[in-house]
Design a protein around this nucleic acid. Structure first.
Length: 274
DNA sequence: CGGGCGGCCTGGAGGC
DNA sequence: TGCCTCCAGGCCGCCC
């Protein structure tokens, strides 16, 4: 579920409640996530430390702690991070929990276990294995059409997989790429070598708009996504093409198609997108 | 070095 | 009702 907007919505939901809290205990019920969870390392890095700040890089939530440590959470496909009372019964697929001095616990649940939870020194985090290769933040000041055009110079292939490549631009997944391409009127199979300067600018603008809109609407909840309070989002009603194969295009009534690119579904309007 | 593909998991939906 | 197949929001590592 979670692409950039969902992680950002989660971050914002936790900002009023998490900073200032001290982690008193970590419990790991099932360490088998995408990368094995080290309970010992989480203990060492987290217990006794206060949360200082919440940041986001790409689709990673970064929880900065005292003493140069950062707790990193990635939701994978079905991950959920919620703040509940400490004594609340464990959910199915609750794989670990951080018990806080407020009497609450920060619970991580993830049925498919594609998520990740780990800790690292805050300093130098961006040079680590998960972060070093990451490209530009699409909502940051240095993202624009020129940036995309420059990145495209060294590459070939369809624009859809280009936008999904985190080395180019981070945070975009299957949903928002489909939506941004639809709004920009660009065919997902169009080669990056054949996109004009003007259209790169248009695309960059639509990427920002669709992500910004999704954040404002609390993210997209298809099945699993919820923020730190367990609240679902409602941007799914604003999706024009994603998941709408066989329905009619909201702009021109042509039937929306689904194709497969790089083993992922792509939804688009064959009349509006060129 | 870039691009394509398989694999990691579970659960829900739909067909028969 | 039950069984089977397909599909799912991400990411990495391996291969060519």
């Amino acid at each position: 579920m979670p692409e950039l907007p969902e992680v950002e919505v989660l971050r914002r939901s936790l900002v009023p409640r998490l900073p200032g809290q001290r982690i008193e205990r970590v419990e790991v019920y099932n360490p088998k996530l995408r990368e094995p969870v080290s309970a010992a390392r989480l203990d060492r890095d987290c217990v006794g430390r206060r949360v200082l700040a919440l940041r986001r890089r790409a689709k990673y939530l970064l929880i900065d702690l005292e003493g140069d440590r950062t707790l990193i959470v990635h939701l994978g496909m079905t991950g959920r991070l919620t703040l509940v009372e400490a004594e609340e019964v464990a959910e199915p697929h609750e794989h670990l929990a951080f018990f806080l001095d407020s009497g609450q616990r920060l619970r991580f649940r993830d049925p498919r276990r594609f998520g990740m939870v780990f800790s690292r020194p805050t300093r130098g985090l961006e040079d680590g294995r998960h972060f070093a290769h990451l490209g530009v933040e699409p909502l940051g000041g240095d993202f624009d059409g020129q940036r995309l055009k420059d990145a495209a110079k060294r590459r070939r292939g369809p624009v859809k997989t280009f936008l999904m490549d985190a080395r180019v631009v981070v945070g975009l997944g299957n949903i928002y790429v489909a939506e941004a391409l639809f709004r920009a009127g660009i065919h997902p199979k169009r080669s990056v070598a054949r996109i004009s300067r003007r259209r790169w600018e248009l695309l960059a603008g639509e990427v920002r708009k669709v992500l910004g809109g999704a954040i404002r609407e609390g993210g997209t909840t298809l099945n699993d996504f919820a923020d730190g309070d367990g609240q679902a989002g409602y941007f799914q009603v604003s999706l024009w093409v994603y998941g709408r194969e066989g329905e009619s295009c909201p702009r021109c009534q042509t039937t929306i198609r689904r194709i497969v690119q790089a083993n992922r579904s792509t939804f688009y309007c064959p009349a509006c997108q060129h």
